[in-house]
């Protein structure tokens, strides 16, 4: 029962943060700001969901793979975001700053 509650909580958190990241990717004004949500909010969303998955799978050897996935995502996602942001910067894309206030 306790495990089920924990699963629900982590799932809810994961879905929430992934939702935020999707909104951010759609709403924010330029590459750099979007990269923020892509690398961070999405990583947290994925991480929480994967914890839920690990809990749902229970104590098995395969559960280790969930944690491997978690570590991969936590290492590769920011690296990819950095690569993308750097590519944008080196291509000379100017960061957005609010102008109308």
């Amino acid at each position: 029962m306790l495990v089920s509650v924990a699963i629900v909580v982590f799932l809810a958190g994961g879905v929430f943060f992934t939702f935020v990241s999707a909104v951010g990717v759609l709403r924010l004004p330029d590459v750099y700001t979007r990269a923020h949500t892509a690398s961070q909010t999405d990583t947290l969303g994925a991480g929480l969901t994967l914890v839920a998955v690990a809990l749902a799978l229970g104590l098995e050897t395969t559960t280790i793979k969930t944690f491997l996935l978690l570590i991969f995502i936590f290492i590769t996602n920011p690296t990819a975001a950095h690569a993308i942001a750097r590519a944008a910067y080196e291509e000379g894309i100017e960061p957005w700053e609010e102008t109308d206030d």
Partner: peptide, 8 residues
Amino acid sequence: TLTPGTLS
């Protein structure tokens, strides 16, 4: 990069 709000 992982900490939200900052991106190297």
